[in-house]
């Protein structure tokens, strides 16, 4: 478990750097380092499916973020009411830590879940579905409704992004835009 704690402190440091650094590109790269840390943490916790997905999604998000921040002067404001912000931040961190202390005490031990249905999946997953990868047999057979909902969410997200980003929706009032430019 020691390497997990080292990785967690690395990720916290990366997140703080991403917040505090002045340069936008450096901030994006620090976010990417945090995401890769999450991917390695999934590997240490023995979840290779999640590790692959996290790695690939992180790469895509980094490409999009770098393309959007490259060659653009984004205003970066660090002035303002410095003292009030700091005090409010510390109060929120204290409240969060206090609540988290009581909440985490009630969590089950690592590796012994409360839901007993997981034991049935592990025992009978291969026999009932024939899939050697237990994760695939859970997300596409036992809990296929969840995957259908997830696919619907993704579909809606893609439609929303394309509707907002397309040219014909952002034209001026008197401007005429051809359909094929859309």
């Amino acid at each position: 478990m020691l390497e997990l704690y080292i990785l967690l402190s690395f990720m916290i440091i990366g997140a703080v750097i991403a917040l505090e650094i002045k340069d936008m590109i450096s901030s994006v790269i620090a976010v990417g380092a945090v995401g890769l840390g999450v991917s390695i943490a999934f590997l240490i916790l023995k979840a290779p499916d999640l590790a692959i997905t996290q790695l690939v999604v992180e790469i895509l998000i980094l490409i999009i973020l770098i393309r959007l921040t490259l060659k653009r002067d984004l205003p970066f404001s660090t002035s303002g009411r410095w003292l009030l912000n700091t005090v409010v931040t510390f109060i929120f961190i204290a409240v969060f830590l206090g609540v988290a202390y009581f909440a985490i005490k009630d969590l089950p031990e690592f590796g012994s879940p409360i839901l007993r249905v997981a034991g049935t999946y592990i025992a009978e997953g291969l026999k009932k579905t024939g899939a050697a990868n237990l994760v695939a047999s859970v997300i596409l057979d036992f809990r296929a409704y969840d995957t259908l909902g997830e696919a619907t969410v993704l579909f809606t997200a893609v439609i929303g992004v394309i509707t907002i980003m397309r040219k014909i929706g952002r034209k001026k009032i008197d401007e005429v835009v051809n359909e094929e430019d859309e």
Partner: peptide
């Protein structure tokens, strides 16, 4: 190979 090895439709489609 999504049903045999780690990975699956989401990660493979993204790649």
């Amino acid at each position: 190979h999504g049903h045999l090895t780690p990975g699956g439709g989401f990660a493979g489609g993204l790649i």
